[in-house]
């Protein structure tokens, strides 16, 4: 086996690391708890994963252009608190429209600071994370705010055998998938993520693409927030707190690279389910709840490590040669 071959095998292993991880986890949890492998539990996992998946789908757009949005949790809180405070008794469709619009505004602020004012994305969204949370806390008076009954009803309703949160998640997923795969815009997102300079030369409006992805992430954060709201009944002061972690983890575990240009929403959904599986499994085996964040962060760490190693390896494979060695 030539060194190039062994490199390719290592790459293949790296690329499938999350899948391997998933199988190992399922086996471990399954052997430790009988309930874990039941169909009901699987449905539970997917329902609980719905909101993370929705937000992570938005995050995928941002990661595809090598950006990051740390403010999704704050956005989710800020957008939903408005619905909880001022829209009791309204048709939930209006709730989604208003929350989505607020999420869009939040995302647009991020986009403006990042693309126009050229502040690094992580620091810009870290700052808006704090500001957004603070505004939401201010609005709520740091109190627990219950959501309207109509929102809660949404969480309990099933349609054609599936809970509504899953339907919303599927809708967002299909729209995102179609956008990324089947529209000019989607393909240009990939192009910008791979090489912004070449993208500009190919006549793509790079700034518009960069701006738009943060807006999409904003809308998804708000919608995901309401889906989560339909399951938790009330917005406490920690609603959406540190949500960015499982969200980024879901996307990166699903194979979307932090370095841009690689990945997609199918993987992200898989990642979200994986993350939720871990949490669910920990509950099932009665693990110490204080260990959850340790496990989740360790998983994110592994995902990022794998992504970095893979990116480094691909770069080495792609390096330009000046001699053509004849085999």
């Amino acid at each position: 086996m030539s060194p190039a071959d062994s490199r390719k095998i290592r790459l293949l292993l790296l690329q499938n690391a999350p899948l391997i991880l998933f199988l190992v986890l399922v086996l471990v949890f399954g052997s430790l708890s009988e309930r874990f492998l039941s169909p009901t539990n699987f449905m539970n996992i997917v329902t609980q994963a719905a909101h993370i998946a929705i937000i992570a789908i938005g995050m995928t757009f941002v990661l595809l252009v090598a950006g990051i949005d740390l403010s999704v949790g704050a956005n989710m809180y800020a957008s939903c608190i408005v619905v909880a405070l001022y829209m009791k008794g309204w048709n939930p469709v209006f709730g989604f429209a208003v929350a989505g619009f607020l999420g869009l505004l939040f995302g647009a602020v991020n986009a403006f600071v990042i693309t126009r004012l050229r502040v690094p994305a992580f620091i810009a969204t870290l700052a808006t994370l704090f500001v957004g949370r603070a505004i939401a806390l201010y609005l709520s008076g740091v109190k627990m705010i219950p959501f309207g009954k109509e929102i809660l009803l949404l969480g309990r309703t099933t349609w054609l055998g599936l809970p509504v949160p899953i339907w919303i998640f599927l809708l967002v997923f299909v729209i995102a998938w179609v956008t990324l795969r089947l529209t000019t815009y989607g393909r240009q997102v990939y192009a910008v993520g791979a090489d912004p300079e070449a993208a500009a030369k190919a006549g793509i409006d790079v700034r518009r693409i960069l701006f738009s992805v943060y807006c999409i992430a904003g809308v998804c954060a708000a919608i995901g927030g309401l889906v989560s709201a339909s399951q938790v009944a009330a917005a406490s002061s920690t609603f959406g707190f540190q949500k960015e972690f499982p969200v980024i983890a879901a996307a990166v575990l699903g194979g979307t690279s932090l370095f841009g240009g690689r990945g997609g929403v199918v993987g992200t959904v898989f990642g979200a389910i994986l993350i939720q599986t871990v949490e669910n499994g920990l509950v099932m085996i009665n693990a110490d709840p204080y260990v959850y964040p340790l496990v989740v962060s360790a998983i994110i760490f592994i995902a990022v490590l794998v992504d970095s190693l893979r990116t480094g390896m691909l770069e080495r494979l792609e390096r330009r040669k000046i001699r053509v060695e004849t085999a």
Binding site: T183, R187, Y190, A191, D195, A199, A202, R262, R320
Partner: peptide, 30 residues
């Protein structure tokens, strides 16, 4: 010498990345 192709996209996508033929005029679908 340094090619301007997007390695993460397919051949056909690279050929049309500046402007894809649309399914329906005015709609964004490729």
């Amino acid at each position: 010498q340094e090619l301007n192709l997007f390695k993460n996209l397919s051949i056909e996508e690279n050929l049309f990345i500046g402007g894809f033929p649309k399914l329906v005029r005015g709609l964004p679908f490729i």
